[in-house]
Design a protein around this nucleic acid. Sequence first.
DNA 1: ACTAAAGCCTGGCTGC
DNA 2: TGCAGCCAGGCTTTAG
Length: 277
Amino acid sequence: MPELPEVEMVARHLRALLAGKTVRKAQLLQPGIAPEHPPRQFAQWLRGARVETVARRGKHILTHLSNGRTLLTHLRMTGRFLYVAAEAELEPHTHAVFWLDDGQKLLYSDVRRFGRLQIVKTAELDETKALRQLAPEPFDPAFTPEYLFRALKRSRQPIKLFLLDQTRVVGLGNIYAAEALHRAGINPQLPAQQLSRPRTDRLHTEIVAVLNDAIAYESTLNTDPRDLDASYTGGTYESLTRVYDRAGQPCLTCGTLVRRFTQGARSTYYCPRCQRR
DNA sequence: ACTAAAGCCTGGCTGC
DNA sequence: TGCAGCCAGGCTTTAG
């Protein structure tokens, strides 16, 4: 389940693999993953386009093309790219194929078809629905403790749900939201607007730190750009998790048993001792 | 304006 | 053994 650090790794690897290369031909096999475009239109916009660079915004991957368009990708839960020889068999659940001018092809595969591809004019990127509402990047100077405090004050939601809302904070998913709250010693049920200013500063620090730690860790572990999906299927972030998916096991800080409960229809993990309201 | 919940999907696991 | 039923969860859409 790629969150910001895993998407960052995929974007970096795609950049290394694709920058300067030309898409000879593209094919959309499963139109449902690109609902904005007819498959032929999708293929036409990519054919002959050179990849200028690959960037990331939140959990979206932005592949900038020489024709003034950008391929927007969101992997959601199980989306992944594979970089294989042009004559290689297609992986199961391959929904799009991009033949490159280096004798390789890029596959987009997604078992559950939650992920989405979209092609937009690069000049209109910031106005697209997918990106328009997003909060500042956690590593951007605009993401300050003041920003976070003001956003928290406007919400009565439990803070865990607040952290998952990409219009307030970008990049956290279920795993890193739980980890950031654990590191900051905050109970996931606390109403967002009740977080004090000092604890907001601490939370801000831990959000940035947990994402940075994950990126640093995955960077050392996954150095081959061709391992495009190893960063989130190879058991990387699990090594960083101190509460996520550890219900019934001792908290790594204090030994109290980690608890799990359902919040917003998904599992929240926390330590009842370290994370008081 | 805000929050809550349903729906999208399918593989893997559990329990009968 | 086989199979029904549940679970995983990011995001959009719909309902309240």
